[in-house]
Amino acid sequence: MKKDLISITDFSKDEYLRIMELAADFEANPNQDLLKGKVVASLFFEPSTRTRLSFETAISRLGGRIVGFADPDSSSATKGETLHDTIKMVCNYADLIVMRHPLEGASRYAAEVSSVPVINAGDGANQHPTQTLLDMYSILKTQGTLDNLNLFMVGDLKYGRTVHSLLQAMSEFENPIFNFIAPENLQMPPGYKHHLDVRGIRYFEHEEFTDIISEADIIYMTRVQKERFSDPIEYEKVKDVYILNKAMLEKTKPNVRILHPLPRVNEISTDVDSSEKAYYFEQARNGVFAREAIISHVMNLK
């Protein structure tokens, strides 16, 4: 049976740990010709330069070749071809499909239609599992463990898929504590709080972004994304509410690291960049190793 990665919950805790192990291996030795002679289709039905470049770098470092498109205007979707037909065609050509799509559930559907493995590179506001695995790898690298951590999530916790998936994944580990900092209308949805409740995992909700962060091991900042709002007035109301600056880091723990899925707008002041607690650019670099690990895992290359 082929292996896909569509939702972070498709993988078990053992698989998370396997990906972490492989990522460390690729970090030590990024260029490994495991994909030599293989073709990977990179289908971006929605532009995402960062994710696409990270994937295409990972594929290149594994020695694979890439076919595909970077934005929907150059795909047959503009001619009205269904996703079903596009995937049916592409899986005849490629050994692996990496796919980003604006509609939720598109990747799950593609995986059903495709005869080759599918890796979800983001489906609307739903899932972005490779981001979660690179976040976990960043947490592991900076904290030395994935157990007993106090995780603060800040900003748009309602629409931010990265925080949802990270919550699901980290709740598999020992004794996490979650702190959610968000404006009232962007709070963590009840479904995810329920997920924690049934597992007996502690979490706290705050509206104020204050020195409560002194308890944090990880501060995961998110961008309030304009494209997730149907009403621009609602966006204007909340976009500048949660901004992290250097002064706020004074009382934080020495081991704390600040993560952000990037791109940031203004939610992390640039004066934070020089702090040793800032980790978001290294986090992005970890993405290549995590994606090399994920590709190797789903294609049984290692």
Binding site: L83, H101, L103, E104, G105, A106, R108, Y109
Partner: peptide
């Protein structure tokens, strides 16, 4: 925004 509302 679910794919099932956009394709058969």
């Amino acid at each position: 925004k679910c794919i099932t509302n956009h394709e058969k």
